[in-house]
Design a binder for these strands. Sequence first.
DNA 1: AATCAATGTTTCATAATGTGAAATTTAGGT
DNA 2: ACCTAAATTTCACATTATGAAACATTGATT
Lengths: 245, 245
Amino acid sequence: MSTIQVIDRSVSLLDAISQYEAPVSLKILSADTALHPSTAFRILGALMEAGFVEKDSAGHYMLGKKLVRLASKVRRGVDLREQALDVMEALRDAIGETVNLTVREGDEVIYIERVTPNRMMRVEQVIGSRAPLHVTAVGKLMLAELGDDFIHAYAGRTGLKAYTVHTVSTEPDLLNLVHQVQAQGFAYDNEEAEEGVGCIGVLIYDNSKNVVAGLSISAPIERRKEEWVKLVRAAGNKISERLGA
Amino acid sequence: MSTIQVIDRSVSLLDAISQYEAPVSLKILSADTALHPSTAFRILGALMEAGFVEKDSAGHYMLGKKLVRLASKVRRGVDLREQALDVMEALRDAIGETVNLTVREGDEVIYIERVTPNRMMRVEQVIGSRAPLHVTAVGKLMLAELGDDFIHAYAGRTGLKAYTVHTVSTEPDLLNLVHQVQAQGFAYDNEEAEEGVGCIGVLIYDNSKNVVAGLSISAPIERRKEEWVKLVRAAGNKISERLGA
DNA sequence: AATCAATGTTTCATAATGTGAAATTTAGGT
DNA sequence: ACCTAAATTTCACATTATGAAACATTGATT
C-alpha cells in the first residue's frame, strides 16, 4: 500500500481547509492536521504555487481555483454525464423540478450533475456535495444492491444518523425499507434528508448490469406527484440503454 | 519561492491526465512529464489513495472524484457566486440566453458559474473551463483595467492566437478595441472565440473598486439584440452594488 | 497454445529531499 | 510604544522519496 508522506499531508491540509466556511489561519490548520507549523507552512506554500490553495489579503488560506479547473476534467463514468444531460433536461421540463445525477463513493452519494427548473421555489443540491446512503432515495437503492451484509456493516460504521424526524435510523427499519424499494425498482425520500424535501430515485446501469449512477428528482414534498414515478423510471431506463444496458 | 518536488510532480501528472479525453496509460504519463516510470507509478499510487486519481478497469489513469468534492468548496471571491446567482437567473429569464460569471486567472478568464435558458439551441460554457483574455468580451474589459503595459506583455507572451477569422490578433487592433470597450463600459465578443457565438460582457467591482469578476451573456450571434446591453449592464451593476461597490 | 515484446510493478541501496527545532520577523492588540 | 502571538526563515540532520534494475503481467503475433 504505497503512500507518500508529503502527499498525505497535503491532502490533510486541503481537507482541513475545506472544513471551514471562511479562510483559515496557519495556526488552525497546523493544529487540525497535527503538523508542525513550519511544515504546514512549507507545504501550503507549495500548494499555492500549484494553485490548489490561495491566500486572502489577511494571509488566511482557502482552496484555489486550480481545483475547479481540474474537477471540470474529471471523467464521470463512461461519459455518463454527457449521455444523461439531455434526458435530465427533458425530465426537468416534463415535471418542472430539479433533477439530479449521483454516483456512490464509499458510504455516500455524490452529486455529479444537476439541472434546475426555472421556478422561484426549488430544491438545489450543489454539484460535488455528498449525502449518506440511508437518507436518499438513490442511496437506498444502492444499499439494496450492495446486500444485507454491507447494510449491516454500514449501519455499524455510520450509526444511521438521523437528519430529520423522518430519517429511518434503525437497522431493521432500514432493511425492510431497502428490500421494499429494491422490489419496486424505485425509491422515495420522504423528507428523510431535509425537512420539506421529497425525492424519487432510480438506478442507472451500464452494459454489464452494474449500477453506475442514480437519477433522482427533488421537489418540495407537497408538490411531488405519484405519476412522476413512471417519468423518472423512463428517464433512468433511457440513460441505462444508452450506456448499453 | 518555496516548492516541493513531489507536489510539483503530482501537479504535472494531474495536468498531464487532464490533457487527455480518455484515461491514459502510465507509459504516456511518464513520457509527458519526463518522470521515471517507477516514480510516476509511485506518485500516481499515492494520488489514488488520496482520491485525486482513479484507474479504470484497463489500468489507465483518470482524475478522481475527490477533486470534484474539493472544488465544490472553493470559495469564489466574497461569496461572489452566492450574490450573483439570482441576478444571473433574472437576466437569463429576461433575455432567454446563457449567462456566465467569470474571474481572471493570469492570462485567462475562468468560468465559475453559468445559468442556462431552457431552449433547444444555446451556448454552453463548462464551469471551470478557460478562455484567453483577448477573445472574450469580459477579457477585453479586464485587459483595459490592467493597462497598456500589461497588454503589450500579454501580446508578447501569448502571440494573440486567433480562434476564428474574427479574432483580433494584432496588438495595435487589440489596443484600439480595448480602449474603446473601456470607454463604453461594456464589450462585445463578435464570434472572436467561436464561430457563430456572440457575447456581451461587463465587469463587476467590489467595495474597493477592484475588478472581481465579469458577467456576460452568450448567444447565437444572429439572436443577439442591441437592447440587451443595458440589461447586462444593469445586472452587473446590481451585483457590484451587493458587493459594496 | 507458445513465444515474445512491451508495459506495469516491486525491490532496494543511495543521496537528495523534506523535516522540525530554534531563531527571526511581522502583525495585532492594549 | 510595547508586548504577545502568529507567521516566516534558517539550517543541520535523517527520513523520505528516488530511479536503476529485476521481476511480473498483459496482450499481440505466429
